[in-house]
Nucleic acid binder design. Structure first.
Lengths: 214, 214
DNA sequence: CGATGTGTTTGATCCCTGTCAAAGACTGCC
DNA sequence: GGCAGTCTTTGACAGGGATCAAACACATCG
């Protein structure tokens, strides 16, 4: 699970595409590496650090009492996560693929900073956006909205590198992997997108996709 | 894509109930009254105030482009809402019944306060709780979880005064009014609850309800 | 107190998605 | 490069909720 830590190497600049390159945080000295499914933190653990994704991707989720998993967010390169309301984590965080993270200490007193407030409000906003997507009616629309979100966050509106499995997508959108797969097929059949392997996606007709999901 | 904001508040996990008399905010001088469906604020309007529900209930919602409405939160007596990430509201807020609100000024500079940060994070937590309920789970389970939430927030675990219509509940839980109604009937048939009129509910077997909804 | 309109319940039917099953594609490893 | 295991796709089927429709309760007002 834990994949050790790589010292030094401040790694590539990382595209700070819009989302939260926390310039206000102390510069990280090292990057921790995580293998796929590697645990970053668990529910109940002491919170108090922020993480920035240098490369790879992270899923943050919660477990239902019946064992089902609800993924509440994914984080990609350049994005920051880990902020918590209390002293302990109320979610689990894992890498979905080989992932590198910078860790920033975060003393409680610093919580008052304007930037952290912004981070908190954005998380709140994202949670609400997610709610709107999940409560959308059809499976194809959910998937489409998800793909548009990922494309925008990855900075390329035509090509997506899905750094996660169908299981992850299903648990994020609240549907089974079969339905996820069928929805992909439907979008492909309609000429909206093309799949080069299961995880490399080309959006052929972005306008059509936007129309479908909005 | 992020336009802005978020209505925050108190609710779920933290059972401070009725609390949330935000001592750090200036005391309100008067109570504004709203008729059922009365608009409190609209999407796009200037934000910058917090509201506390004195009596009645409030729905906060967003409109999908297809005209469907997604209610993201209800607020009852003693609870506070209206916090926004940006300068404008990204949601609509309306009274569901005859409602009284106290309004608190909230200058932008005050956003750094620790209390407001907590409010934002709790709001995020509530959104994610809501997500767990809405995605997955059967209609009966959704309704059950909703009723348990409301009962706890209203302070009486056995009696609920639903200050909203079936339409509101449906738009909150992501299902049609027919399904909401059928779910009520099912819970009644199983002896879990009893309805005195459509909006006055008595929970006969709270334990059974908890078991059902996990 | 009855009338009208709104809100709720119940019924019948259809379709989407979950479930079970199996074949096909891809990846990592030897 | 070939094998094994995992991930993905596709198919068949069933069930739950959406949709369409109508009867039933309830509130407000004349």
């Amino acid at each position: 699970m834990f994949a050790g830590a790589l010292t030094a190497t401040q790694s590539h600049p990382v595209r700070a595409q819009g989302v939260l390159a926390p310039s206000f945080l102390p510069r990280a000295r090292q990057i921790s590496l995580f293998a796929p499914d590697g645990e970053i933190y668990a529910q109940g653990e002491q919170a108090g650090a922020l993480y920035r994704v240098e490369f790879g991707a992270v899923r943050v989720y919660r477990l239902h009492t019946d064992g089902r998993r609800q993924i509440v967010a994914f984080y990609f390169g350049g994005e920051t996560f880990g902020l918590e309301a209390g002293r302990t984590h109320s979610f689990f965080a894992e890498a979905t693929v080989h992932t590198g993270l910078s860790k920033f200490a975060n003393a409680p007193g610093e919580l008052e900073s304007q930037e952290l407030m912004t981070l908190a409000l954005r998380s709140m906003l994202h949670a609400q956006e997610h709610l709107l997507v999940v409560s959308r009616q059809s499976a194809v629309e959910k998937l489409g909205a998800f793909l548009l979100d990922v494309a925008e966050r990855q900075g390329d509106l035509d090509h997506i590198d899905l750094q996660m499995t169908r299981v992850d997508i299903g648990e994020y959108l609240g549907m089974t992997i079969e339905t996820v797969s069928r929805s992909f097929s439907k979008l492909r059949e309609e000429g909206i997108l093309q799949l080069h392997g299961a995880k490399t996606i080309e959006i052929i007709q972005p306008e059509k996709l936007v129309l479908l999901c909005k």
